[in-house]
Design a protein around this nucleic acid. Structure first.
Lengths: 153, 153
DNA sequence: TCAAATTAGTTTGGTATTTAACTATCAAGT
DNA sequence: ACTTGATAGTTAAATACCAAACTAATTTGA
């Protein structure tokens, strides 16, 4: 009986936790889109996530980007079409494995990094202002634990 | 100099934290959609979030639901159209304030709750299995702190 | 009392996401 | 070599999301 009550409370807490995560993501997204807009750049939050992958490592295929950004590969086709239109990346067929299309940053794509990175960092700095690093690390552990729980099931 | 390094590390940690949050949400969503599919119910995760609001409190207007689910009100029009089509809710014009359209659960909408709630709870129980309640509570505090930081800015 | 500001909801246009079916290419094992 | 299976990418259809412009109803305040 006691454990039932405890379990239900914990479950409700987990639901609330999910809600708060969503709220934090929404606010982060809004702040970043605000920065993007303030500087008159024609790019979305989602595209920025893709660019972030390429700024870390240029020249990866679409599937890899889909894995890194937790998206379906079919969505990548569309998202990359839009990035190609904006001349921020280019598709190059891989000669070694012709199934792959390697994505490379263009000159504009490289330049955008210098322009955007400071503003994006600002948002995350704002979010974590006054937060103890250890709390953040514990939070990461908590998330990993829960992610692993769901991966098992 | 030292604080700069520390700050940049913390910022990167915050970015990683954001990534992990996204990953957890993706997995949670997938697990719940799996349950929905297993039981052959014609509803999406997003619709379920709306239904969750109504199960807590029946008879609220669209704007209120939009606030609770952290969505734009324009998206609510569309989402509720789909829920009305599925006969899970109904729109009722508010006589007191004719701008409002109050949303009420139908009989089917009420019944769905009994059917779905146990499965949804299962997913969150799975996610929080073996997790210390105090860690979860600390996680909530961390999220609230970060959300408030962004709200200020 | 009446103009101005506010609020709820809709529409539109552009973007994003997922599932499923499909093509093309490569890899492994017989 | 050939079949089988896996992998990368595309397409189509349905759903979802957000911003901006719009309508209709209400509230405010001089």
């Amino acid at each position: 009986m006691t454990t039932q009550i405890k379990n239900s409370t914990k479950t409700e807490l987990a639901v609330e936790f999910g809600r708060s995560m969503n709220e934090l993501r929404t606010h982060t997204r809004q702040q970043i889109q605000l920065k993007i807009k303030e500087h008159g750049i024609n790019i979305t939050f989602e595209m920025l996530e893709v660019m972030g992958c390429l700024w870390r490592k240029d020249g990866i295929n679409q599937q890899e980007i889909a894995n890194l950004t937790l998206r379906d590969k079919s969505g990548m086709t569309y998202l990359l079409d839009n990035l190609v239109k904006r001349k921020l990346v280019k598709r190059v067929e891989d000669a070694n494995d012709r199934r792959n299309k390697m994505i490379y940053l263009t000159k504009d794509g490289h330049e955008l990094r210098e322009q955007l990175n400071p503003w994006v960092a600002e948002v995350y700095e704002m979010a974590s202002e006054g937060v103890d690093v250890h709390n953040l690390q514990n939070g990461m552990l908590l998330l990993s634990e829960m992610i692993n729980n769901l991966k098992k099931g």
